[in-house]
Amino acid sequence: MKTSRGYAAWLAVSGLVCVAITIFAASAYVTLDMSQARPPLHGPVHYGLLVAHIFTGTVAVLAGVSQFWPGLRARHPRVHRVMGRVYFAAVLPSSVLGVVCAQLSLAGLASSAPLTVLSVLWFVSAVYGLKTARRRQLGEHRIWMIRGFALTGAAVMGRLWGLALGALVPDGDGLLLFATANWLSFVVNLLVAEWWIQSRGYTRTLPSVALRPSISSRSAQSSASVA
């Protein structure tokens, strides 16, 4: 599929925005100064788990952005595969750490619920993305990578939703706005991802024979068994 200039420009701009916001968000944890942490913490162990989650998540964003560049896939497939392995190696531990950090949240269920759901879905998408890649099911792999990166990008969109909601409701309850931003960050992303998958016709290219034997093949099997 030929990549238009508009599509390439959109990929470049959105990729740069993702990378910039991710690096900015992670910069507060580079010095390992616990006083710079944004959420309230239980202590050093909680902080260590949070830092590990943030840095593996940062690697996932940076590696994931490269997976959607058509030129890389076409001209440098080996680099594409290596970056894909880096992506999965980052997402799997980061999603598990995300579940743990969500349970340790001092803000209660309003904070932990969306982060737990997001982390579980993120883990599942990575497992299916990796499984379909290993089986060379490239159509399914593409779809699961789109879904997976929609969840990876929730870390970026959560901050943008938080800024937008804060500007729209400046006197609103901070915890409620935070929880709403977290839900919107991945629910909206997944809806957009599914729209993209359907609009680009990716599901129409999936093989159906592997999912359900044809009538003729079933008839042939029945005839063979009778014979």
Rank of each mutant, 00 (worst) to 15 (best):
V19H: 02
A154K: 00
S119R: 04
A179V: 00
M34G: 04
R204F: 03
A227V: 15
L165P: 01
G57E: 05
R75H: 15
R85S: 11
Y87A: 08
I215G: 07
S125N: 12
S222Q: 13
G84E: 01
L138Q: 11
L163C: 11
G15L: 07
V117K: 04
Y29A: 07
L168K: 08
L109M: 13
M157I: 10
L191C: 15
F55C: 11
V156A: 05
D171C: 08
A89G: 13
V226Y: 09
F149P: 03
V13Q: 09
W196H: 05
G15T: 12
L211S: 11
A155G: 12
H76E: 09
A107C: 03
I54R: 03
L62T: 07
L97G: 01
G172M: 10
R142K: 13
W161M: 07
V187E: 01
R135S: 07
A133W: 08
S185T: 09
I146M: 14
A154M: 00
S112F: 05
G201P: 05
A224I: 12
R218I: 12
A164M: 07
A220P: 13
Q137Y: 09
R38A: 15
F178S: 13
A220Y: 12
I143L: 14
R142E: 13
G48K: 03
I146P: 01
A37R: 04
A89V: 03
A181Y: 00
G139F: 03
I23E: 08
N189A: 09
A25L: 12
G6W: 10
V30P: 06
